Amino acid sequence: MAGDAECGHPLPPCGLDGLPLLLVPARSPHLAPALPVFTSTDFAAHFTFGLRLLIEGLRATGPCPTPSPPPPPAGS
C-alpha cells in the first residue's frame, strides 16, 4: 500500500478494520475508548441511541414558549 507522505506511516487497509491503525491514543485519548462504538455495525442500536438522545435533548429544552401575537399593521 502507499505510504502517508505527512507522517511516513503505511496506510491501513480500507474499511473499518483499519481505523484502529490510524488512531494515535496519545493524541486522541477520548476517542480511543469510543472506537468500538464508532465501528459497530449494530445499526438498530445506533438508531435507538440517536433517537433517545434527540428526544431527551428536546425534553431538556422545556416547553415551547407561546408566541406573542403579531403587531397590528402600520397605520391602524
Score class of each variant (00 low, 15 high):
M1T: 13
A2H: 12
D4Y: 02
C7Y: 05
G8D: 02
P10M: 04
L11Y: 10
P12W: 00
C14A: 14
C14N: 07
C14R: 13
G15Q: 05
L16A: 14
D17H: 07
P20N: 07
P20H: 06
L21T: 06
L21Q: 15
L21Y: 05
L21D: 14
L21N: 07
L23N: 03
V24A: 11
V24R: 13
P25W: 09
A26D: 12
R27F: 02
S28Y: 11
P29R: 04
L31N: 02
L31A: 13
A32H: 11
P33D: 06
P33Y: 10
P33F: 08
A34V: 02
L35T: 04
V37M: 05
F38N: 01
S40Y: 03
S40K: 04
T41A: 11
D42E: 10
F43K: 03
A44F: 03
A44N: 06
A44G: 06
A45S: 10
A45P: 01
H46V: 06
H46W: 11
T48W: 01
G50T: 08
L51H: 09
L51F: 12
I55N: 05
G57R: 09
L58A: 14
L58N: 05
L58F: 12
L58C: 12
R59N: 08
G62L: 11
G62V: 09
G62F: 08
P63E: 15
P65S: 12
P65C: 05
P65G: 10
T66E: 15
T66W: 03
P67T: 04
P67Y: 04
P67D: 02
P67F: 03
S68W: 03
P69C: 01
P70K: 09
P70D: 14
P71W: 02
P71E: 05
P72W: 01
P73W: 00
A74Y: 05
A74E: 14
A74F: 08
G75L: 03
S76T: 14
